[in-house]
Amino acid sequence: MRSLKKNFSRGIVRANPIFILLLGLCPALAVSTSLDNAVGMTGAFTFVLLAANIIVSLLREQIPDRVRIPVFIVIIATLVTIVDLMLQGFVPVLSESLGMFIPLIVVNCIILARAEAFASKNGMIDSIADAVGIGVGFGLAMLSISLVRQLFGTGSLDLFGRHLFTIPPLADNPVVFFLLPMGAFFVVGILLALFRWMGVSRSE
């Protein structure tokens, strides 16, 4: 039970995929313009990671060592395509705004890294805990980046069509910079420095 908790909480802070490991930065920066996108991306990412971890942990005794990486890649690519097709068919709005970054989950280094480093060496329950923990860590990072970008970039916050609140002076003169691609680099850089300053993560 204790190891389960450890495997779960590792991905949230101590080994946060985005802020600590700096893996999977591409989707984090590209689709973090709104909270909707952040939630959608986290959902797709966590589903693929969870399913890949489960399948790999169940097959870990059977997969021949020599072809394990190609096998992992095929499993992940299949899962990603399933998510991609499902989103296109049933949530077209989300599919359109996330665009290419759904199929690109396949080259997200975190998923292959977890399959190789964790799921192929641990049982199913531990692998589920690991995947959910990393999913939550990824989600928290995505939400904090997109919160800052949407708030400063538009002056108001919306989530799935529901209006949360508006900051009037900011809504009249939104800081468009935050919605630009460069704004993403800036926000992640500042947040990263902030977490280090607060002692959440170590400096280099």
């Binding site: 700096l22 800036f186 850089g189 990263l192």
Partner: peptide, 8 residues
Amino acid sequence: MGTPISLI
């Protein structure tokens, strides 16, 4: 130091 300043 390191990555944050690279991002900036």
